[in-house]
Design a binder for these strands. Structure first.
Lengths: 213, 213
DNA sequence: ACAAGGGTCTATGTATACAAACTTGAAGTA
DNA sequence: TACTTCAAGTTTGTATACATAGACCCTTGT
């Protein structure tokens, strides 16, 4: 694996997990020494992070970790609703019903996973990820998929602010199941509506439980 | 201006204007010599282009100019309709009516510009750009604005494939005026509908007149 | 004649040295 | 005392030398 890839992955993780807080200046020599590489691959990693929006080049003071304020979260979810709503609708039109019917069945059994503790929780996150991937594949629109991917980075970062309790996860699983059901039924408008509902509930949960940094 | 900025701008222009055709391999030494810079800033330029999707790193064959097929154009417009439709609706909710009323007035006089020849044509493109910028500003959502900006690069590239005759431009100006009018009237659904109509007509025009490379 | 292996060559990936620009601090003057 | 200017130091931007890996071709053996 390339050194720049390792640096990118390490910094991305540090930012998403809030170990590198917003406003932190990522000086090139400092970070390259910390990660044990030279400045060249580090600079490539930084430019990738900046392209994703996780960092910005603040004039000539180097690159700094971007902030996510409460207004940012609203904007983020506004775009997310637009993109994922459209994606769910397209998946309902173009996706394979059997795939989503299977996902729905699994999602209905998710509460057992969520209440089952550590490994079950991991299995649930994996299941939710499979639904996202299935939608991505079903829409067959690489530009839309790319736009959603670039959003997800920021969303993961926001999610780390919220406390995901078992109660919310159980409700989220039911909402996911409703989305999968609508897609399996080939009903675009219902799929979009179910997605809108899910995202609004997610946003409310984040805003209520978010812990300021 | 930094050497990497110049390299980025030059390569971006070459790709958008189809001087560098899809599939062209951008070898580092070759391009750095052509642009009169060293490999380091060139690599940064290439990584920026790749982040935008204008190039891709094809395994170990270096970076190549990405292709835009007819299916890609459909996908591109599908995403564009989603984003710009939402943007027009938000602008209708949040924008300043006077700004868009003014733009509408100017757009209604656009046919004179279009039929006025070279400088008038340029003035029209500038006017259309002002409408885009006004919508960008009105939505007050940096994530959505960023998503639209990253789309526009590809759209400019596609537009270069089509022959923009005076007849199409006149029709487009009327469609733009309709969008501005709906936003000025504070009618989100009408603004979104007008945008949908405009984009579908644009897409049809591109598909009919596009010249294969 | 065809396939397999090795070697060379050319490409990208990395490190480092150098240049330039900006920031910061201190000193001097109004 | 406050503002301006100059200088030093630290930072990023660039060039280049070196490492490494992949591709292509030639040779050799079956």
């Amino acid at each position: 694996m390339r050194a720049s890839d390792r640096a990118y992955a390490a910094l991305r993780d540090d930012i998403i997990e809030w170990r590198l807080l917003p406003g932190t200046v990522l000086a090139e020599v400092e970070q390259s020494e910390r990660l044990g590489i030279s400045r060249t691959p580090l600079r490539e990693a930084l430019s990738r992070l900046t392209a994703e929006g996780l960092t910005t080049t603040a004039g000539s003071r180097g690159v700094v970790v971007t902030d996510i304020s409460l207004e940012d979260i609203d904007e983020l979810f506004e775009l997310r609703e637009t993109l994922e709503g459209k994606a769910a609708a397209l998946a309902a039109e173009r996706g394979d019903p059997a795939t989503f019917e299977q996902l729905r069945t699994e999602l209905l059994q998710a509460p057992e996973l969520i209440n089952g503790g550590g490994p079950g929780l991991h299995a649930y996150y994996e299941l939710a990820g499979r639904l996202d991937a299935a939608i991505d594949a079903a829409i067959s629109n690489s530009y839309l998929a790319q736009a959603m991917r670039s959003l997800r980075v920021h969303l993961v970062r926001v999610r780390r602010l919220a406390a995901d309790d078992a109660q919310r996860l159980t409700a989220a699983a039911a909402e996911h199941a409703a989305i999968a059901e609508a897609i399996a039924a080939g009903n675009p408008r219902l799929a979009e509506a179910a997605t809108t509902v899910h995202l609004h509930r997610s946003l409310s949960h984040v805003k209520v439980t978010h812990t300021p940094h």
